[in-house]
Structures are given as C-alpha cells and as structure tokens.
C-alpha cells in the first residue's frame, strides 16, 4: 500500500522535522535557521508547483507574490510598532495569523489581476509577461520611498504567534513546518479534486477540456490566484525569518530560484519543492563554504540537472512520475 514515492516523501518530511530538532538539542541554532529556510522556500515553491506542476503554467514572476507577502508582513508590523494607522483608520498588527491572512489575500488578489491579463497568452508570451509584471512590482517597490524603497524595511521584533515564543528559532521553525505540511495537504486535496483534474487535463490537452465544456481560462485563473496566495504566505514567513524585507525578494532571480527548486526536486510532484529546497539550501551552504564562486557551480549543477537528470531528485529516488 505504501508506494515508493510515498515512502520517500515520508522520509523527507521526517528528516526535515528531525534534523533541526536534533540540532536544537545539541545547541546548534544555526542549523535550525537553515531548516526554517528550507521549509519556507519549499512552501513558496509548493505554491508555484500548483500553477507550474499541475497547470503547466510556467510563471517567471512568482517573486512578485513572494515579495508582496513579505511586504505585507513588513508593513503591518511597522504600523503595529509605530502605532500609525495604516489605511482607513485600520491599524497594523503583529499577530502572525492575521498577517498571513492579509498576505494571502493581497498576493492572491494581485495574482488574480496579473493572471487576468497573462493567461490570455500562452507559451513564451506567458513566461515573459509574468516576468514583466514581476519587474513592474519590483520597480514600484524600489521607487516608492514610503517603506524603505531600495534599502528595504526592517521588522524590529519578529511577529507573534499565540501561545509560542517566535523569537526562539525552534518555535518559529515548528510554525513554518506546520504551515508547510498544511499547504502540502491542500496541494493533495486540490490535486485529487474535480478542479485539480480539470487543471491537469487543461495542461495535457486544452482543446479536449474545452470540448467537454470546461473553460480552461477560469480553471487556470483560479489556480494561478491560489498559487500566488500560497507563495505570498511563504513571503510573509520569509520576512519574519530575516526580520527584513527588501526589493530583492521581488527580483527576477527569486522567480528563477523558485522554478529551480521545483526542477531540482521534480516537477509536478508533491514533495518536489521540499526536496528541491533542501537540495538548494544544502548546495548554497556547502558550496558557499568551499568557494566564493559557488553560484558558478550551482549553475553547472543546474545545467546538468536540466540536460541529463530530468526527473530531479525525486525522479532519482522514487522513479519516474506517473503522470506525463
């Protein structure tokens, strides 16, 4: 009953939980922070995986949603700290659940708007137009001085979660881990639902889906907005991890990295983003320790993966994906 992929997934999930807990027990908070990074990047990539893996929508602009989530957290926290009202007399907040809700709403809404226009195109046009919209958000963040502009925005005290001390690395890790698991559960639900079937069918054959009376555009738009919201949530957590938001979260390198995570792990697979994020952070850490030029070797590894190991890490560990 347990197939190989499920087994690999369970091991990965257990490892991501066990390693930081042990590191914490041995008094190595640095590794806890690394694991938190893995969990958050995996969450962001899981959001993208919904659009890219299931829907075949190669969005090269998901950094926009990641950054918007981050700025939502940063701006709300700033206003909560200073006491200045934010908008229409509403004040900021430093409560994570509320911040997450706002981050997801705003990112989802922007995703809906970007999707409305972008999804009218397909193929290369879609890749480039999502990239261009993300750049638009990026330049806006740079040229709008109210929240730090190019310098970014610091979050002085990490936002709070009821019943936890978020300043303790391991508590914050557990929060991020729990959010990631919930998001992965949502991914499973969506993938198995009628909506998810339609989304995957639209990727495989758009004409047939339209022929049976389902409009691919609406299905894709919904998926794109949900995907944006999840990535926005990850952005809010990322801002809290670093206690800093800057336009670099919105840059196109970030969009590229999110796609890289999915490909390194295995496209369209439930744990692809997690495997990819773990691999990426380990590369970054190990190569970064060995040589200042680690990005060169990251490029080399990535190139090798694309050219020769198309299933990614999960393809190696758990065999070929069942769907095409």
């Amino acid at each position: 009953m347990l197939n190989r992929e499920t087994l690999v997934n369970l091991i990965l999930a257990a490892l991501l939980l066990a390693v930081p807990l042990m590191a914490n027990a041995f008094g190595q908070p640095f590794y806890v922070t690394l694991a938190t990074r893995v969990a958050i990047l995996a969450l962001a990539a899981t959001g993208l995986n919904l659009a890219l893996g299931l829907g075949g929508l190669v969005s090269f602009g998901h950094a926009a949603f990641f950054g918007i989530g981050g700025y939502a957290a940063g701006i709300l926290a700033t206003h909560a700290f200073s006491g200045d009202p934010l908008l229409l007399g509403l004040s900021g907040t430093n409560q994570m659940p509320l911040i997450w809700l706002v981050a997801m709403l705003v990112a989802g809404l922007v995703g809906l708007l970007i999707g409305l226009i972008s999804l009218r195109t397909s193929g290369v046009y879609f890749i480039m137009i999502t990239l261009a919209f993300a750049q638009m958000v990026y330049y806006f963040a740079i040229s709008w001085p109210a929240y730090g502009g190019e310098d970014g925005l610091s979050i002085l005290v990490r936002n709070q979660f009821p019943g936890a001390n978020t300043m303790k690395p391991v508590s914050f890790f557990l929060i991020c881990y729990a959010v990631l698991i919930v998001a992965l559960g949502l991914f499973v639900l969506i993938r198995g639902s009628r909506f998810g079937s339609a989304l995957q069918a639209a990727r495989q054959n758009e004409v047939r889906v339209a022929t049976v009376g389902i409009a691919p555009y609406r299905i894709r738009l919904t998926a794109f907005a949900i995907s944006a919201a999840l990535t926005g949530l990850a952005g809010a957590l990322f801002a809290d991890l670093n206690r800093f938001v800057s336009p670099s979260m919105l840059s196109w390198h970030m969009s590229g990295e999110l796609i890289v995570l999915i490909i390194l792990g295995g496209t369209g697979r439930l744990f692809g983003p997690l495997a990819g994020a773990a691999l990426f952070v380990i590369f970054e850490y190990v190569l970064g320790g060995l040589t200042e030029r680690w990005q060169f070797f990251l490029g080399l590894i990535l190139l090798g993966t694309v050219l020769f190991a198309r299933g990614g890490l999960l393809g190696l560990l758990a065999g070929k994906a069942r769907h095409g």
Binding site: V58, F296, V306
Partner: peptide, 22 residues
C-alpha cells in the same frame, strides 16, 4: 519545452556572471 530552456539559460547566466567576476 520552454521550461527546460528557461532553466538551462538561467543556469548559463549564473555561470557567465560568476565567471566574469572571476
């Protein structure tokens, strides 16, 4: 497909930039 092209050429950017810095 375009996804592979995007990724491979993204990898090339990393290598070109870092190589030039080298």
């Amino acid at each position: 497909d375009h996804l592979d092209q995007v990724l491979a050429t993204f990898a090339l950017i990393l290598m070109f930039s870092e190589g030039t810095r080298w």
